[in-house]
C-alpha cells in the first residue's frame, strides 16, 4: 500500500508549487479572458469570446504584435539556430582554445535581457552610438540611422541584439549533442570515401535529430515569450511597430487595466506555443517508453 503512495510523496512539493504557480493561475486567466474587467471593480462583465474577436478583428496593434512574434520565431529558427549549429560544428573539432571560443560565444547568454537592452540601446544611439560612429568613420554617413526610431529597422535592430545574446543556447545544446556522437561512423564513411558534406548530411544530421527537437522547441518557446529586451529597448515603439504579444499583454493589463483583453492575449500566446510544442512533448514522452 505504502509503495503506491510513496512516489506521490516525493512528487508532492513540486506538484503543489506547480499547481499553485502555473496550473491554477493559467486556467484562471483563461476564465478571465471571457470577461470585461478592469482588475479592480467588483463587477465583471461576461463577454464570451468578444475579447478574442476584438483582438483579431478590431485591435490595430495585435496583428503587428502577432506578426512580430512570428517573424521573431522564424528569425530565431533560421539565424540563431543556424549560427549555433555552425559554431558548434566549428568548435567540435579538436581545436586549440575551444573552451575560450565557447566561453566567448556563450557569454552573452549569461546576461539579462535588461543588460543586453541597455548595452545595445547605447550602441544604437543616433548621435554617439557605435554603429553610426563606425559608419561615419568609413565614410558611409548617409547610412547612419536612428536605428530604434525607424519602424523599418527597429524590430531587426532589437532582434540583432537578441541574436547576440541568444546564440549561446543552441550552441551549447548542439555541442552537447555532437559530443555524444561516436567516432566510428565517421571513420567508416571516411574509408568509404565520403565527402565532408556527405558525412555531415548522412551521419551528423540524423544523429543530431533529438538535439534538433529540443533546440527547435526551446528556440520557439523563447521566441514566443520574448519580452524584457523589447520592453527595455523600445517599449513597443515607434508607433507600436516593435510590440510583441508579451509586451502588448503587459501594457493592456498593467497600463490600461484591460484585464480581459490582456488575458486573451496571453491565451493566444499559450495556444500558439501549444500547437508548436505538443508534437514535441508527444515525441519526447513516447521515446521514454524505451
Amino acid at each position: 500500500m505504502f509503495t503506491k503512495v510513496k512516489p506521490w510523496l516525493y512528487l508532492l512539493p513540486a506538484l503543489i508549487i506547480y499547481l499553485t504557480v502555473i496550473c491554477f493561475p493559467s486556467l484562471y486567466s483563461l476564465y478571465l479572458s471571457f470577461f470585461e474587467w478592469n482588475g479592480v471593480a467588483p463587477d465583471r462583465k461576461f463577454v464570451g469570446l468578444d475579447n478574442y474577436v476584438y483582438l483579431f478583428t478590431k485591435d490595430t496593434v495585435f496583428p503587428t504584435a502577432l506578426s512580430n512574434n512570428l517573424q521573431w520565431m522564424l528569425g530565431s529558427l533560421v539565424l540563431m539556430m543556424g549560427l549555433g549549429l555552425a559554431l558548434a560544428l566549428m568548435l567540435n573539432k579538436r581545436l586549440k582554445g575551444r573552451t575560450w571560443f565557447r566561453g566567448i560565444f556563450y557569454f552573452p547568454y549569461v546576461l539579462s535581457g535588461i543588460v543586453v537592452a541597455m548595452v545595445w540601446t547605447w550602441m544604437y544611439n543616433p548621435t554617439q552610438g557605435f554603429f553610426n560612429k563606425v559608419l561615419e568613420l568609413v565614410g558611409l554617413e548617409s547610412w547612419t540611422q536612428a536605428w530604434l526610431a525607424e519602424p523599418k529597422f527597429a524590430l531587426y535592430a532589437v532582434f540583432l541584439a537578441a541574436l547576440w545574446q541568444g546564440v549561446g543556447q543552441p550552441l551549447v545544446l548542439f555541442i552537447a549533442g555532437l559530443s555524444s556522437i561516436p567516432d566510428d561512423p565517421y571513420e567508416a564513411a571516411f574509408i568509404d570515401g565520403a565527402s565532408k558534406f556527405q558525412s555531415f548530411y548522412y551521419i551528423t544530421l540524423p544523429l543530431l535529430r533529438e538535439t534538433f527537437v529540443i533546440v527547435v522547441a526551446t528556440t520557439m518557446i523563447g521566441a514566443m515569450k520574448v519580452y524584457d529586451i523589447v520592453y527595455a529597448m523600445t517599449g513597443g515603439g515607434p508607433a507600436e511597430s516593435t510590440q510583441v504579444l508579451s509586451s502588448l499583454m503587459y501594457y493592456q493589463t498593467f497600463r490600461y487595466a484591460n484585464i480581459g483583453i490582456g488575458s486573451a492575449i496571453s491565451w493566444v500566446l499559450v495556444l500558439i506555443v501549444m500547437i508548436v510544442l505538443i508534437p514535441y512533448v508527444y515525441y519526447t514522452t513516447k521515446r521514454s517508453h524505451v
Binding site: 540611422q145 525607424e150 515603439g237
Partner: peptide, 8 residues
C-alpha cells in the same frame, strides 16, 4: 526635431 526623436 532631434534625430530619432520618435524613440528619444
Amino acid at each position: 526635431f532631434p534625430k530619432g526623436y520618435v524613440s528619444l
